[in-house]
């Protein structure tokens, strides 16, 4: 991935008597700090912790920066972004930062009183309230005591689910909801984890590939790859079937679908290891390319095949 090595041989030819506090020296490549020229060019500006960006008098500090001594200073390694007078640094690699409305895939870690704890690659575990899930016997109804007692009937520890970020609590914990028929428990497939910044916001995060595979691209970097379920076979609004929605049993999955699922999973892990952002078009192209090669899905994990895949797909994109 981003591995590289470097070798430096450094020496001190002479020892200077006068010593100043070790202040990091400005290189020639420093960002243009000129009042007018700051971040005007199209080029991406990179920053790293401790890098001075601009004066705090003229600009406001945003995420990934702090102010010290009237200077805005980066606190993470990443890309500098500016909106009017607001300077932010977007880290290249980080955990998932939730926003309201995001689609996430998560795993239940704990069942508590009237709530589940969900691990969703964020800095804290998310909360799924009992009042934010669809319950059997009608979508809209009050939660009864009996529901509280049988919470494990709906979600158990270890279950995977797809949900939407509903709100935040005071301490920044996110609250999820599954009050839509497209959300809920996941089955018939496999989970793949990628760095969250590789999943861009799309029009729809539910993708159906023509090879009979459904994809759910969680914005937290968790991706669910499963067997395609036909529209008319989905658990409908009218006959909201709790048995089916909260079922723990997989359907029968035939061999060709299993191969297709592993092929998509391997494609995603290869693309992720080369830090290629995932979109439906790229995945589709990669899938077609991989089928053309007439190899097993496992061949994709070989270094040279993976490299060819990435160069082919990114060149076309």
């Amino acid at each position: 991935m981003s591995d590289f090595k470097m070798i430096a041989f450094t020496s001190f030819p002479q020892y200077q008597e006068t010593f100043k506090t070790p202040v990091f020296e400005e290189d020639g490549d420093e960002m243009d700090l000129d009042e007018n020229g700051f971040l005007e060019s199209d080029e991406l500006k990179l920053a790293w912790p401790g890098e001075s960006l601009t004066s705090a008098q003229a600009y406001m500090r945003g995420h990934g920066t702090y102010v010290d001594n009237d200077e805005v200073i980066a606190s993470v390694a990443g890309v500098v972004e500016r909106v009017n007078k607001l300077i932010t640094v977007r880290p290249v690699r980080t955990r998932y930062n939730p926003e309201v409305g995001d689609l996430v895939v998560g795993r239940i870690t704990e069942v508590q009183a009237r709530r589940w704890k969900v691990e969703a690659n964020s800095r804290q575990e998310a909360v799924l309230m009992l009042s934010s899930v669809n319950l059997p016997g009608g979508v809209q109804r009050r939660k009864l005591e009996s529901d509280e007692l049988q919470m494990r009937m709906f979600f158990e520890e270890g279950d995977l689910l797809v949900a939407e970020v509903q709100a935040f609590f005071g301490d920044g914990t996110m609250s999820l909801h599954t009050r839509s028929l497209s959300y809920g428990k996941l089955r018939n497939g496999q989970l793949i984890t990628v760095p969250p910044n590789l999943v861009r916001r799309l029009k729809s995060h539910f993708i159906s590939l023509p090879c009979g595979v459904d994809l759910i691209l969680g914005l937290n970097g968790y991706i669910w790859i499963s067997k395609h379920v036909k529209e008319n076979e989905r658990e409908g609004e009218e006959g909201f079937d709790a048995e089916a929605v909260y079922s723990n049993r997989n359907d029968n999955i035939d061999d060709s679908t299993r191969i297709a699922i592993s092929r998509v999973a391997n494609i995603i892990s290869v693309l992720a290891s080369y830090s290629v952002p995932l979109t439906d078009t790229i995945l589709l192209e990669a899938y077609e390319w991989s089928v053309e090669q007439e190899g097993d899905p496992k061949d994709l994990l070989q270094d040279h095949v993976g490299e060819t895949l990435v160069t082919t797909v990114t060149a076309r994109g």
Partner: peptide
């Protein structure tokens, strides 16, 4: 610090580069 900064900078640049083919 020069070495550390250079390493961080290089890996950041590589990642940013890969993100936008």
């Amino acid at each position: 610090h020069g070495e550390i900064k250079r390493a961080v900078k290089e890996t950041t640049a590589n990642l940013v580069d890969a993100m936008q083919p």
